[in-house]
């Protein structure tokens, strides 16, 4: 079973709809034990870093998420579910985050319109099962004002050009996270979910298999 972590994130219904569409077997849950025991974890998220971290702590799912990742459980982070993986975020006067990946999250520099909102291309770096069947430079839907700067270049799995080139996808083994919203990115976005559930040992609906 895939656990979709319910800590109050606004996009959880959209994520659940997309998982349903690709034929996933999943549970939306706020139960720390269920998260810790899941075959795979999906962490949605929108909004601010401090709210997200507070939501995770209040639901007492922060430690189970970190433990699951440490154990090698497949993980998919969406938007804030990517940003909170790092050591800290500049947002809300420096917010300490989960520290799963070394690096920080910073705001787009002055002069760029924020939020970065709309469809933009993702340049895939290296091979990743998450991008199976997804053409290079496909467009995905973004809404964010901060972006991750991983300390370890090897974690960069996709980049996007918005005046500057930023890391839009990260990966470490079966940990995957996207700054964009695959649940709002049409067919290529659904393909990302289908690929993830395959990593999690499930078989996607026939049209995505």
């Amino acid at each position: 079973m895939i656990a979709v972590v319910d800590y109050g994130a606004g996009n959880i219904h959209s994520v659940a709809r997309a998982l349903k569409r690709v034929g996933a077997s999943f549970a939306v849950t706020a139960d720390p034990a269920a998260v810790a025991a899941a075959d795979a974890v999906v962490l949605p998220g929108v909004g601010a870093a401090a709210d997200t971290m507070r939501g995770l702590r209040n639901a007492r799912v922060d430690d189970p998420v970190v433990t699951a990742i440490a154990r090698g459980t497949p993980y998919l982070g969406i938007c804030m579910g990517l940003q909170v993986l790092f050591d800290r975020s500049e947002e809300d006067n420096e917010t300490p985050c989960l520290g799963v990946l070394p690096g920080e999250v910073v705001r787009f520099p002055a002069g760029l319109e924020v939020p970065h909102m709309g469809w933009n291309q993702v340049r895939q770096v290296g091979d990743s099962p998450l991008f199976a069947g997804v053409p290079q430079d496909s467009n995905f839907y973004f809404v964010h004002s901060y972006y991750a700067r991983p300390s370890d270049e090897a974690r960069v799995s996709g980049t996007t050009d918005y005046g500057l080139e930023f890391t839009s996808v990260v990966r470490r083994d079966h940990l995957y996270a996207t700054q964009f919203h695959p649940e709002k990115s049409g067919l290529v976005g659904l393909r990302i979910y289908a690929n993830f559930i395959r990593v999690a040992g499930q078989t996607p609906a026939p049209e995505f298999d």
């Binding site: 430079d137 290529v188 659904l190």
Partner: peptide, 19 residues
């Protein structure tokens, strides 16, 4: 302009129809 394959999946999946 976004000219990726759109909408619902179909037989051939993500074909040559690309940017």
């Amino acid at each position: 302009t976004r000219l990726d394959p759109y909408g619902q999946p179909s037989g051939g999946g993500l074909g040559p129809h690309n940017r």
